[in-house]
Design a protein around this nucleic acid. Structure first.
Lengths: 224, 224
DNA sequence: TTATAAATTTAGGTAAGCTTAAATATTTAG
DNA sequence: CTAAATATTTAAGCTTACCTAAATTTATAA
């Protein structure tokens, strides 16, 4: 498997998590910064390798083989993030950036060694679930986007999902981190802003930032 | 720089260490398991990029830019080896195998972080020198191959240079490791074997193994 | 429902990094 | 010193992963 193929498959997997079964090739092309024509080429090639289901003009989906491959790459990515975070103390943005490369040249052997070293972690430092050796993954079920959370309620931050440097720098300087408790002060529906209370001060987030922060309602924490 | 280019340049660097200024393209091709034709292509391309000095039918050498690139890759390789050895406790053979891949997708940033974590090591677990940030490297001067060592003298093992799994497994099971003291019992000139005393028992090595083990004469240890 | 706009695919082309086979240069042996 | 053997390069061709531009299909709006 080449780096291009791994990235293609991985991108479909992630997109499908958002738009179950309705992932357009043009979206994948845009996410990978390649032309639609190149994406079509790749889709046809991967279909012949039985990694994707693809019919002209239709959404693209992964076969179970393709899904397994995607999860292998994602597993390596998240294990690297966890490992670099723990040993080298890199920031949330830095671990993502480095893992984005390393994930492709990592043997299964090495991934397993890192997994052992970290004592089989279930989530990475961003709060994303780490697929197991066999491709099993527990996508979080009861977490919501901060922009969908209810005014007045208390939540725990469970996931920071972004690859944007500014976002992570903002998080760091405002103590936004996995496990931190916040209260939703107000949802400004008209302009998609969210005001939250964190560490006794208030932050007003626009949707670009708020749509990267996932939370769990405090009282429901045990209902996993 | 692509992985192919990095490996090509790195191989020239290493070969040139053995055959100063007399590195044939066909040797590089063989070491990389590519055809001579492919090596010629690459040589011409790299010459146009000013990474190598190359004239048809003549030996190939690195330019100073090429040398810097080679040392950057080697630095990443040896830092990875050191890092994986320390954190994950992989074997000498395993660290080499994994570093061979990782070296190519490692940012300078990450290399420096690993360097810091390890407290700026000067040699890797095989005893090979680790090039510095600026491309400075101290190739060991007074070490000799075990097959060239003098009968009756005491030496310290300073370097295990191989990428062969069997060799490292042999070393592990016979306590052959960096820093261990040995005595040369006898050089069998006619059949290129070397008998050494290590940990109070005698080992007889053939040249295939003996040519991977470098040592320093104990009394000269301080003359670096 | 049909014309037009938008999305998608097809066609043709490029660079990298290889290959095999043929041509040419260098080395070596007599 | 030359002819055969050996080494090296050139030529032609392949695959991957892209691209641009043209063609075609699908969606939308009057």
């Amino acid at each position: 498997m080449t780096i291009s193929i791994e990235n293609f498959i991985k991108t479909i997997y992630k997109q499908d998590l958002l738009l179950h079964g309705d992932t357009k090739l043009s979206t994948i092309a845009a996410l990978l910064s390649i032309t639609n024509a190149a994406a079509t080429d790749m889709a046809r090639k991967l279909a012949s390798k039985k990694l994707v289901n693809y019919t002209k003009y239709k959404p693209i989906t992964l076969t179970s083989t393709g899904r397994k491959l995607a999860l292998k790459v994602i597993r390596k990515h998240r294990l690297w993030e966890s490992f670099l975070y723990k040993t080298l103390n890199l920031s949330l943005h830095e671990i993502h950036r480095e893992a984005e490369y390393l994930e492709h040249l990592t043997s299964d052997f090495l991934a397993d060694k890192i997994d052992q070293y970290l004592d089989n972690p279930t989530v990475d430092p961003h709060g994303d679930p780490i697929p197991g050796k066999n491709g099993n993954i527990e996508e979080a079920t009861n977490q919501v986007l901060i922009s969908d959370a209810e005014t007045g309620r208390k939540y725990n931050i469970t996931r920071l999902a972004s690859s944007n440097k500014d976002f992570y720098e903002f998080c760091e300087s405002n103590n936004i981190d996995i496990g931190v408790e916040i209260t939703i002060e107000k949802q400004f529906e008209s302009n998609n802003m969210t005001a939250i209370k964190i560490n006794n001060h208030t932050l007003v987030l626009n949707d670009l930032f708020a749509n990267n922060i996932f939370v769990n309602q405090v009282s429901k924490n045990l209902v996993v």
